[in-house]
């Protein structure tokens, strides 16, 4: 809990602070991406960096994602620790080879003799009518492919610690930040994402989920924006006498199955909330992680609240119809109870 005079930061500022602090102590860290220089990043997460570190270490790139992401792979293998930004995760389509065939595989192909210590930071999420090429999450797509760690902070405290951990990791880390949590000038921000962030550098462990709300009747598992929806639903449920536990995954790869299983073993019920497409993704993986381990802990069939398997529509009414929200989570509980 934030105390009244504690410093609160947005995720945008906490990311920039983590990068700046690491750059001060580690000359091998540098940043590449589109509009990450004088503009400070479309999402504000590199603001102030070029002023402090100059354009040798803070590099605005051409619109050449394949070139600069694969260049980051090469630089990482050669002793640097690049942080690169893919402006919208939706743009992975033009550069995925650099990501999943090079960044994610070179450690393995080389039998571990090459390391690829780099961070690929990228924005996710919709809810503001930017249509289907600028609103996706594709968490499952990245988490599916072996060789890259994948993290997704839900608040500024985790955002800073995960960024520092990612930059210090000897393996590639995909760092997925949700636009609706970011705290930037052009979009509203979920209030719960802007929290107390210590000034000093610290890490948040990659691969460890967090129980962000204790409960005993149902476990709601989510990540990023979904955590806030889950917390809001938990509040509503509480007013109905239902005690919901909320698990923030924080990291998709490695996935902390222990924490999920322990929570569901306690509550006996599971709802997974994911803004990514429903099928073949995170929500199915979480449910499988529980059921294949010990199906007997479940008192009811698990439920998922995820984006239906359609491209993300532009029109507000259509998009909102598809997106997860607290009401849908409460409805999932109601169905679970009725069943």
């Amino acid at each position: 809990m934030t105390k009244p005079n504690e410093r609160k930061l947005t995720i945008a500022r906490s990311m920039a602070e983590a990068i700046a602090q690491e750059m001060r102590i580690d000359p091998s860290v540098f940043v590449m991406g589109e509009d990450i220089g004088p503009l400070g990043g479309v999402y504000g997460n590199t603001r102030g960096l070029i002023e402090e570190f100059g354009d040798e270490r803070i590099r605005d790139t051409p619109i050449s994602e394949t070139a600069f992401i694969s260049a980051a792979v090469g630089a990482a293998q050669d002793g640097m620790r690049p942080v690169v930004e893919l402006m919208f995760v939706d743009f992975f389509g033009v550069c995925f080879d650099a990501i999943y065939n090079l960044m994610a595989k070179n450690t393995y192909f080389s039998g571990g003799s090459f390391k690829v210590p780099m961070v690929l930071m990228t924005s996710t999420g919709g809810g503001y009518s930017d249509a289907g090429q600028h609103s996706q999450c594709v968490y499952g797509t990245f988490a599916h492919l072996p060789g890259m760690k994948v993290v997704a902070p839900s608040n500024a405290y985790d955002a800073k610690g995960l960024m520092t951990a990612a930059m210090r990791d000897d393996s590639p880390v995909v760092y997925m930040f949700h636009k609706g949590l970011q705290g930037m000038g052009w979009l509203g921000t979920e209030a719960g994402a802007t929290v107390h962030v210590p000034e000093e550098s610290y890490t948040v462990e990659i691969g460890k989920a967090k129980v962000v709300r204790q409960g005993k009747d149902v476990t709601i598992v989510s990540l990023g924006m979904g955590v806030h929806n889950a917390l809001k639903a938990a509040k509503t449920l509480e007013s109905q006498g239902v005690s919901a536990e909320v698990v923030d995954l924080v990291s998709l790869v490695p996935l902390d199955r222990e924490t999920i299983r322990a929570s569901v073993a306690k509550t006996g019920r599971l709802i997974v909330v994911d803004e990514d497409y429903m099928s073949y993704g995170v929500s199915g993986e979480i449910i499988a992680s529980v059921t294949e381990h010990d199906i007997s802990v479940l008192k009811a069939a698990p439920k998922r609240v995820a984006f239906p398997d359609v491209p993300i529509p532009f029109a507000r009414v259509m998009e909102q119809y598809c997106l997860p929200n607290p009401d849908k989570i409460v409805a999932a509980w109601d169905q679970m109870k009725a069943a």
């Binding site: 930017d130 249509a131 289907g132 090429q133 491209p311 529509p313 532009f314 029109a315 259509m318």
Partner: peptide, 9 residues
């Protein structure tokens, strides 16, 4: 497009 695409589509 019945509202599916918007300004960029």
């Amino acid at each position: 497009s019945g509202g599916r695409g918007g300004h960029m589509h």
